[in-house]
Write a protein that binds this DNA or RNA. Structure first.
Lengths: 227, 227
DNA sequence: CATGCCAAGATTGTCGACAATTTGAGAAAG
DNA sequence: CTTTCTCAAATTGTCGACAATCTTGGCATG
């Protein structure tokens, strides 16, 4: 049971859950344009649910910072800006840095070995399907996911995974992340897991912060190139 | 206009807003017991609103981690445990540490002078009303609030202020924070603002992390003493 | 022509009722 | 006496309609 993907299937029991997941995907992947206004009656019809159910989903989207609401006015998808990108990534670096430090302290040897195996597997896959950014992104998310889980801090996990990650993905997907950074990110991942394996939390934290900072610069450049 | 309190009055326009604020207060201050189950029909009647409105408020409480929901089962107030205290304070330390580092970089000289004045004012008040923990808590919140605002990172502010702070207050209030730590906290605040005034972000970050760590230990001791 | 006001339309907030699901007490079987 | 099944009561999820608020276009007025 090792080396399998650690990304969990989200529990979707209610209709509002389903609308939330679908809407979130549409927003993150650009199906609904960033900054655009959201019409409750229109979307309710599109998803074949009542407005109450749709509003429930919108409330959750607001909680993960994917939409912004104003009372009696309405709801719009967040706008992607360089300023906001920096803000989000500063927070992300601090939190994932913490996750790394805790992971170095709390992960089991088996969990660490698992991640190493995962990286090897991804490396092989990547050699074959050069440039397939989807697999790269999935692999990257999986790596970060496991570190966060490895911190054994449920609150930290919830904050990163539910409140921050979809927003991060939104920037990455809509800025079209591909290219030469892929192989470099692998090396960085490797250095991080080695630091964790050595139980060097301080180093692991520093490497992760730097890794995320590089990633931010990469997206920032796309922004500047875009106009 | 200097030296006034910086804590903003929250915008409360809709009925759901009001219920949210009232319920949050009741949960944080213990009016509704930690860990207890929440009955939607009962609370709706108590606040004289429909269940839909109450559910809206519950959704927001869930977003700030004050209640936990399970689909088709219900909603209960979070339980205060030493483990969760540590988790929350680890996250808090990382985020407020970041806030300090950014504040040292981004606060204006005027804003810094304002906080210094605030601390002096609180010190005087505190000498007169020795042991009045309410004022101390308000002052403490005000101090931290201004640092966070001073980071000029809106996302960080939102995360700390909306998603984490009420939970922190819940631990503080329900564990009955008073006593000899009050005067020591003042000195720590002073050291932090001095580091920021010197534009020494690294030191400010470290001092803040330590300050929060002390605060956590203090609450943890109350836990141990409580049983 | 610019500016402020007003009404009509559209959008959001709130409600009470109905449907789906869970829970728990009690009966039946072992 | 214990265990399992059943069914009714209670609770949550969903809906469609109504009330309150905001927006917008046109009209009157200076």
């Amino acid at each position: 049971m090792t080396h399998q993907s650690a990304q969990p299937i989200e529990q979707v029991t209610t209709a509002a859950d389903q609308v939330f997941v679908d809407l979130r995907r549409a927003i993150v992947e650009g199906g609904i344009a960033q900054g655009s206004k959201i019409s409750e009656p229109e979307l309710a019809k599109r998803f074949s649910v009542s407005r109450a159910t749709l509003r429930d989903a919108l409330n959750r989207l607001e909680a993960c910072n994917l939409v912004e609401r104003k009372a009696n006015v309405g709801c719009r998808v967040v706008a992607l800006t360089p300023e906001r990108l920096i803000e989000v990534y500063q927070v992300r670096a601090a939190l994932e840095g913490l996750a790394c430090r805790l992971a170095a302290q709390n992960m089991t040897d088996e969990e660490i070995a698992d991640i190493k195996g995962l990286l090897n597997k991804h490396l092989n896959e990547q050699r074959v399907k050069e440039g397939e950014s989807y697999y790269q992104e999935a692999g990257d998310l999986d790596f970060h996911y496991r570190i966060i889980k490895g911190s054994k801090n449920e609150h930290l996990f919830s904050l990163l995974y539910h409140d921050l990650y979809q927003l991060v993905r939104m920037y990455r997907v809509q800025m079209g992340m591909t290219g030469p950074r892929v192989s470099k990110a692998f090396d960085e991942h490797l250095a991080i897991i080695n630091a964790i394996a050595n139980r060097d939390g301080e180093l692991a934290e520093m490497l992760m912060k730097r890794h995320i900072s590089y990633s931010m610069n990469n997206i920032e450049n796309k922004f500047n190139a875009a106009q």
